[in-house]
Every structure is written in C-alpha cells, then in structure tokens.
Simulated assay, not measured.
Amino acid sequence: MIRTAQTKEDRLSRRVIHLAERSHPNVACVALANKTVRMAWAMLRHDRDYQPERAAA
C-alpha cells in the first residue's frame, strides 16, 4: 500500500505517505492495517457502506 500510495491523490494515501515519511515504514503499515480493521468493524457494526471521503478522518 505504501508503495502504490505514492501514485494516488486521495486523502488516505496522502495520510499513509506522510506517516511513512515521519516514522518507519513498518510502523506506517501497521497503523494502516489497524485503521482498515477499525473501518471494517464500524461498517459491519452499523451496517453501512464504505465512504471514502471519511476514510482519512
């Protein structure tokens, strides 16, 4: 994800790039995985669809 995020302009990709620049790439990878799991849990819990505009909030 970190490698491919450099070619994208969405908020989540920019956030991952910024995090990887300030910390070790492995830390950024784990943070992204944690955020993804929390978003998936919230979508299942509240029976909602994915909303990309809220992903980087």
Score class of each variant (00 low, 15 high):
Ala33Thr: 10
Ser23Leu: 03
Gln51Phe: 04
His46Asn: 15
Arg45Ser: 12
Glu9Asn: 07
Arg22Ala: 05
Arg11Thr: 03
Met43Gln: 14
Leu44Gln: 11
Trp41Tyr: 14
Ala55Tyr: 11
Arg45Gly: 06
Asp49Ala: 15
Ala20Trp: 03
His46Gly: 09
Val37Tyr: 13
Val30Gly: 00
Asn26Glu: 08
Gln51Asp: 15
Trp41Cys: 03
Arg15Phe: 08
Val27Glu: 03
Val16Leu: 13
Ala57Asp: 10
Ala33Phe: 11
Asn34Ile: 07
Arg3Pro: 10
Ala31Asn: 06
Ala33Gln: 14
His18Arg: 01
Met39Arg: 10
Arg48Val: 15
Thr4Met: 12
Val16Glu: 00
Asn34Pro: 01
Thr7Phe: 09
Glu9Cys: 01
Trp41Phe: 12
Asp49Leu: 15
Thr36Lys: 05
Ala28Lys: 04
Ala55Asn: 08
Ile17His: 00
Val27Ile: 14
Ala55Val: 10
Ala55His: 13
Gln6Tyr: 14
Thr4Pro: 08
Asp49Arg: 11
Arg45Thr: 13
Ala5Thr: 07
Ala56Thr: 07
Pro25Lys: 04
Ala55Pro: 11
Arg45Phe: 11
Asp47Lys: 15
Leu12Lys: 01
Lys35Asp: 15
Ile2Val: 04
Val30Pro: 00
Arg38Lys: 14
Cys29Asp: 07
Leu19Ala: 01
Leu12Ser: 08
Ile2Lys: 07
Val16Asn: 00
Ala31Leu: 12
Asn34Leu: 14
Thr4Val: 13
Leu12Asp: 03
Gln6Pro: 07
Ala42Lys: 14
Tyr50Lys: 04
Arg54His: 10
Cys29His: 02
Arg54Ser: 02
Ala57Thr: 08
Pro52Phe: 04
His46Leu: 14
Ala42Val: 09
Val16Trp: 05
Gln51Met: 07
Met1Thr: 10
Tyr50Phe: 15
Arg38Glu: 14
